[in-house]
Design a protein around this nucleic acid. Structure first.
Lengths: 191, 191
DNA sequence: ACATAATAGTTACTTTTGTCACCTTTCCTA
DNA sequence: TAGGAAAGGTGACAAAAGTAACTATTATGT
């Protein structure tokens, strides 16, 4: 399939992830195409290793499984594409070309499934205009799970001041305790 | 471009978002293709309205701007594609077909830019094997910002039990207080 | 039949948090 | 130049949160 394109050449083939890594050690590849379910070492594992050891080698996942977990993990590793085997040759070649020029191709129906999950976190953004810079500092610390004592130490102020500030923030955001503040901080991408 | 495909027919054209909405009120469309920057009403606004009033009409963004903010907003609204005008006709037609069958096509270089932003939040996953189901329940509640009293009420157990459980969870996860538990819960996608 | 794990509970105690009232300094603006 | 907002502070107090030491019941697996 791949060599039907004159510009491409298959310079190595492997039966599983471990073998693919061994091949990478011997020669340099522009792109590595991996299946996910393989004996000995699966594609996700192999992708992780290859991506960290040869950051310039692009990785394409070509598989029959559009399981959300697989897709998310692959994307997290930083693959350049997640293509399904159900697609046609032209589609695969397109993804390969795209990967080599810095693109990220995700099969449309896979993207449609996964995007809602990725967007779930990407909701409320506006940090909050009413907080003073100092209050925002403290809110961030709370979002990191620090105690009042630790915050006082980090910002070099007294515990009492931290408490006063915290009370202020709670009022302004209409929340009840530091746990809710931490949640707020995370959900608003302050930490 | 579009009618070069025999299966497709352009049944309406508009100069800006407001006009597009008026057209939608008069007739039903399978798919609406929107630019982003337009006079009177921009494509994002129009997409929002059209998507909420005619949920079955697919929306494709076709624009020259691959600004992250535009892309994220569009995806959040729930468009079926974000295609660049730099692409060829075939690419647009493919996206239209894909949209109509439930796919989501994002131009590869746009996806490559936007994905890291979306993944930032999507880190560590495994909830934790050592927790009992009940403990996980309580951890979830803490992650929602509930107090011990509220948790007791929701799960119909005593406050003392909630406290005992919380202590157990803190031990198992090697954390210090409920704020850190809430953070843990969110970061591990328990809430 | 016995041990274990999960669930639920009580009491007593310590520590953190959060609130309130009130004070000082600095800096900026009407 | 008076008033406000931001920053920092103190001390006292109430309310949660968290710990420790036990107890009891119900499954489940060996």
């Amino acid at each position: 399939m791949i060599e039907s394109d004159e510009e491409m050449k298959v310079t190595g083939e492997a039966n599983h992830g471990k073998e693919a890594i061994l091949l990478c050690e011997k020669q340099s590849f522009d792109i590595v195409i991996l299946d996910i379910r393989m004996p000995v070492m699966d594609g996700i594992e192999a992708a992780k290793v290859i991506h960290s050891r040869w950051p310039n080698t692009k990785i394409l996942i070509l598989t029959t499984f559009d399981d959300n977990q697989y897709v998310l993990e692959s994307l997290k590793i930083g693959v350049s594409g997640y293509v399904l085997k159900t697609g046609d040759t032209e589609s695969l070649l397109r993804s390969i070309r795209s990967a080599l020029t810095g693109g990220l191709s995700i099969e449309d129906h896979v993207a449609a499934k996964v995007m809602p999950i990725l967007l779930k976190q990407e909701e409320n953004k506006q940090p909050d205009p009413t907080l003073t810079p100092r209050e925002r500092d403290i809110l961030k610390c709370i979002g990191e799970g620090l105690s009042n004592g630790e915050i006082a130490e980090r910002l070099a102020i007294s515990i009492g001041t931290v408490k006063n500030n915290t009370s202020q923030i709670l009022n302004k955001l209409e929340l009840r305790d530091r746990t809710q503040l931490a949640i707020y901080a995370i959900r608003h991408n302050l930490v």
